[in-house]
């Protein structure tokens, strides 16, 4: 855990993404393998969410500029996903016989699926390395 992305506030984020990754992945495997026919759309979307969480987690742990950019892009996808699917589940509940991780903006998970990517975007965008020869822009 030496990555600069997972220190400071990043430590809280990497822990939450760890919980999400384990929780969403096991849930997706369980649902896809035992009850796929009940709500295929919901379960496939939950699996997509799980995959995104896993990749973000790995990027946080590895660190570095490429991992930071990847995590930044995936946090944006995650936020778009939870907002888009959250709205979709409210507008057309009949398409979703069962809940997804992102249903109703993540209400089943204390709204963390919508809060955490916002904190993630904030934290990751602050971690950009200053370009060589330039002073950091932030005041003391």
């Amino acid at each position: 855990m030496r990555s600069e992305l997972s220190s400071g506030p990043g430590r809280l984020l990497v822990t939450l993404y760890g919980v999400f990754a384990v929780g969403a992945t096991s849930r997706a495997i369980y649902q896809l393998s035992t009850q796929y026919d009940e709500a295929p759309l919901a379960y496939v979307l939950s699996a997509v969410a799980a995959a995104i969480y896993v990749v973000i987690l790995i990027a946080f742990v590895r660190g570095g500029e490429r991992a930071r950019k990847l995590a930044l892009a995936l946090c944006a996808v995650e936020l778009a996903g939870v907002l888009g699917i959250g709205t979709w589940t409210l507008v057309e509940p009949s398409a979703f016989p069962d809940q997804t991780v992102w249903s109703d903006y993540g209400i089943g998970y204390l709204f963390l699926p919508v809060i955490v990517p916002v904190i993630g975007l904030w934290w990751l965008s602050r971690q950009r390395k200053p370009e060589p020869g330039r002073e950091p822009a932030s005041p003391a």
Binding site: G8, R11, L12, V14, T15, G18, V19, V22
Partner: peptide, 28 residues
């Protein structure tokens, strides 16, 4: 999962000796 949650969060907070380590333990 319930058995592992607090030990995992505690482990994550061990090497983060700042307020953010405390926040990580709180999340657990």
């Amino acid at each position: 999962g319930a058995t592992l949650t607090v030990p995992a969060a505690g482990f994550m907070s061990l090497t983060e000796r700042s307020r953010w380590g405390s926040a990580t333990a709180a999340a657990g």
